[in-house]
Amino acid sequence: MPRLTRRGWAVLVAAVVAYASGVWVGFPVLRALGGAGIGAVAAALAVTARRPRVVVSREVYPDRVQRGRPAFARLRVHNDNQRRHSAFTAGDRVDGGYHSVAVRPLAPGADAVYHYELPTARRGRIQVGPLTLERVDPLGLGRSHLATGDTTTMWVHPRTYPVRALVAGHPRHHHEGRTSDDSPHGTLDLRDVREYVPGDEVRHLHWKAIARTGRLMVRDYVDPNQPRFTALLDTRAALLPPDVFEEAVDLTASLMNAAAEAGYWCRLVTTGGVDLKPRSGQQAVRQVLDELCELTPLTGTAPLVPASLGQAADRGGTLVVVLASAYHEDLAAVATLRPHYASTVVITLAGGTDTGVTIGVPGVQVITAPNARGATRRWNVAVAE
């Protein structure tokens, strides 16, 4: 639906007043000026009423990007008509703003590709679109908008820093007890025979079970010696200013990313109720970063250590706790978990005060740093020692 711009309304009002004045006082010049203005407005509405008859598509690359890293949108325009298409403007609503691209006139069957950068300063799921096509007449009197309904989601992940994986963990062998249902998949010991799902290894097919059930069945293996890595992130808003919260999320993402890529069985726990067990590998990295992408501070009150972290089946390996400040009661709560993990590390972000102070907690290593970058550097030094 075409609409008048502010300039169009101003011209229309002036034209009507001029024409009415010309009729009232009998001046033909005013009537001619008024008629010309009204005609120009009518022509503008007629021009902008024609919708752009082109095929427009937009894709975002990459669809997942670290905070602060570049991301782009690629706009493709194709004129599949037999006539030359006039210029128009294509625009996207991105993270509360609007980005427009001036599309030049296209010859019959011609294509045009445009690129523009997307904002990635804010962590979260950013909606790009809907894509709108806008046509404006040469005088700027009329304008029409056409929404194509094309929207895309861009995941802005936390920033990650290089981190060394900590080699630690208690081996878990099946002869010492029943393997838990959430044990890592993939190697040494047979846990169960289950129905095949897409993505399972074909070499693990259990032919006897297939003959007996008439369905595809596979052997489900576990690796009882696979190292474990658990990260506990404090998300209490009362203790984490917004800037420190973002640093804590970046630090947690860096640690989980390194552990998953090193083959650790990973687990992400927050005081806000998140309890993610994404296994290991690149798929685990993506799950963790997607979860942290949408993580928000906890506005209510909650203990630092959730009850789910105390389940015996999920213990073992390395526990890393990320805090804003090392309060006595929080460290005391972490100390109660110490017997259930091979190593326990507390990392506190001092919110800009680089004190370098190490607080003594029996059996718990405490690292203090001003931000995520500093914490990862001190972590790497501690791991190398």
Rank of each mutant, 00 (worst) to 15 (best):
A326G: 03
N81K: 11
S180Y: 13
A302D: 08
T153A: 13
A14D: 03
W379V: 08
G8Y: 07
R212H: 15
E176N: 11
G140I: 02
A258R: 04
V320G: 08
V56F: 02
A284C: 11
Q82F: 14
P108A: 06
T148K: 10
E294C: 05
C293K: 02
D290S: 13
V357T: 13
R31D: 00
H170F: 12
G317D: 09
N79F: 05
H99I: 15
E195F: 14
G214N: 07
I38L: 12
H157A: 13
T132R: 10
R125W: 00
V13Y: 06
D92W: 00
N81G: 14
Y61K: 12
H173A: 09
S183H: 11
V16E: 01
D234M: 05
R3A: 14
R236Y: 01
R215A: 12
E195P: 12
V345H: 12
T89H: 05
V364P: 07
L33H: 06
G272Q: 12
A313V: 13
Y161L: 13
L30G: 04
R83E: 15
A231K: 01
R159W: 13
P297Y: 06
L131I: 00
E201L: 11
H340D: 13
V11S: 07
P303S: 07
R7C: 02
Q283I: 04
E329H: 13
V56W: 04
V17F: 06
T353S: 15
D189L: 09
H173G: 02
D189S: 14
A46Y: 10
L45V: 05
G263V: 11
T148H: 07
A231G: 08
E117P: 00
Q127R: 12
Q82P: 01
A302Y: 06
V197T: 14
S254E: 07
A258Y: 08
R51N: 01
L106V: 04
L233W: 05
R50F: 05
A262K: 09
L331A: 03
L141G: 00
L30V: 06
V361E: 09
P303D: 10
Y98L: 01
F245I: 08
A121I: 02
A110D: 14
R178H: 10
Q311G: 09
G300D: 06
S86E: 15
R58N: 03
V364C: 06
A165P: 03
R76D: 12
D137W: 02
L349W: 08
A237C: 02
R191G: 11
R50K: 08
A40N: 01
R123L: 09
G317S: 11
S144V: 06
L232T: 01
D182I: 09
V54Q: 05
H115S: 14
I210H: 09
L323I: 04
V163D: 05
T48G: 08
L216N: 01
R286P: 00
S183E: 14
S183M: 11
